[in-house]
Design a protein around this nucleic acid. Structure first.
Length: 304
DNA sequence: ATGTCCACTGGAAGTGGA
C-alpha cells in the first residue's frame, strides 16, 4: 500500500504563474495535478520546465482562455480523452483525461456561465449535461476514477462565506446546483465535503474587495471519487498558503490523498512511461483492497 | 455598478472573460 496525492488547481494563466506553480510543486510534491485556465495556446505550454521539475504532462490549450492540463510526477500521463463526447462545434478546451499512477483522472474546467441568464449560462448548462452523461459511463466502468477541476458551482450555501451578493451569480443558481447534485446522485463522492462534513472550506477568493484578506471565499474546485476509489480516500485539504503568495491565482490548490495498491514493477521513469491506459488501469484494479466502510461515503452537509 | 487580474490587440490603453 502506498499513498498518492492528487490536486486540482485553477492556475489562471500558466505562463504568468510558473514561479508560483514550481514552488508549490516542490513544496507539496503532488503525484497528479489537474490544471485549469491555462490561458495559453498549445505551443506555449511550459512542458519542458515542468519536466525539469520532475513532471510529465499532457495539455489541451487554447488561445487566451480556458485550457486544461494533467501533470504526473515521475511519469507521462497516458491520455485517454480530450474533449467530452457529443460536443459538435464546441471548440473550447475544457476537458482532458488520462491514466496515471494507477487511476483515471478527468480534469475539467466547467463554464462559468455569467452573466445569467443568457447564452453563456445556456452553454454552461449544456456542457454540464454532456458532462453528466459522460460521467455516468465512467462511473459504471468500475475503474478507479477521479473527476477533478473547477466546477464553477457552489454546491450549497454552506460552501460560501455569504450568498447574499452572489444570489444572481451563475455559480449559485438552482440549475447549476441541481446539475452538481445529479452528478453526486450517480454515486460520486465529493471528497472535500466527505472528509470535512462540518467545516467551512473555500478554494477560491476573487480579487475584488479584499476577499482573500477577509476569507470571503467559495468552494468551487471539487474532486469527485468513483465507487471504487471512495473507500481509499485518506485525507483532503486546500493549500491555502499558495493563495497568499505574491501574484497568486484567485484559486488555491485543492487536494486529496488516496491509498492505492503499490504496483509490483518499479515506478515508471521519465524515459519509460506506463505502456498503455489499459495496463495502467489493470494494475490499479488488480489488487482490490478489502472494502472498508469509511465516513467518506455517507453524510452530505445539511447546514445552511 | 463595483471591485482586480490575465491575455489580446496593436504598438497605448481599452476590451473580454472571470
Amino acid at each position: 500500500m502506498k499513498t498518492i496525492k492528487l490536486a486540482t488547481f485553477n492556475i489562471n494563466g500558466v505562463r504568468s504563474r510558473m514561479p508560483a506553480l514550481l514552488k508549490w510543486l516542490a513544496h507539496e510534491q503532488p503525484d497528479i495535478v489537474c490544471l485549469q485556465e491555462l490561458k495559453a495556446p498549445d505551443d506555449a505550454f511550459p512542458f519542458a520546465e515542468l519536466r525539469a521539475a520532475g513532471y510529465g504532462s499532457i495539455w489541451h490549450g487554447q488561445r487566451a482562455w480556458n485550457g486544461v492540463a494533467i501533470l504526473a510526477r515521475g511519469m507521462d500521463p497516458i491520455e485517454s480523452r480530450r474533449g467530452l463526447p457529443g460536443g459538435k462545434g464546441d471548440d473550447q478546451s475544457r476537458y482532458i483525461e488520462a491514466a496515471a499512477h494507477g487511476i483515471i483522472v478527468g480534469c475539467l474546467y466547467l463554464p462559468n456561465g455569467n452573466p445569467q441568464p443568457g447564452p453563456k449560462f445556456d452553454y454552461k448548462l449544456a456542457w454540464f449535461e454532456r458532462f453528466i452523461h459522460y460521467a455516468a459511463t465512467l462511473y459504471r466502468s468500475g475503474h478507479p476514477v477521479v473527476l477533478a477541476g473547477d466546477y464553477n458551482v457552489v454546491p450549497t450555501d454552506f460552501d460560501i462565506y455569504n450568498p447574499r451578493s452572489w444570489l444572481k451569480d451563475a455559480l449559485l443558481q438552482p440549475e447549476s446546483r441541481a446539475c452538481y447534485q445529479r452528478l453526486l446522485d450517480q454515486g460520486w463522492t465529493d471528497a472535500l465535503r466527505a472528509t470535512h462534513p462540518d467545516e467551512r472550506i473555500y478554494t477560491f477568493w476573487d480579487y475584488f474587495r479584499r476577499h482573500w484578506q477577509t476569507n470571503s471565499g467559495l468552494r468551487i474546485d471539487h474532486l469527485l471519487l468513483s465507487g471504487e476509489l471512495a473507500p481509499r480516500l485518506k485525507s483532503a485539504g486546500v493549500d491555502r498558503w499558495v493563495r497568499d503568495e505574491p501574484s497568486p491565482s484567485d484559486h488555491a490548490p485543492t487536494w486529496i490523498t488516496l491509498s492505492v495498491a503499490s504496483t509490483r514493477k518499479k515506478a515508471a521513469s521519465k524515459s519509460n512511461p506506463v505502456a498503455t491506459k489499459k495496463s495502467a488501469v489493470k494494475s490499479a484494479t488488480a489488487k482490490k483492497t478489502a472494502k472498508r466502510k469509511t465516513a467518506a461515503k455517507k453524510k452530505t452537509p445539511t447546514t445552511r
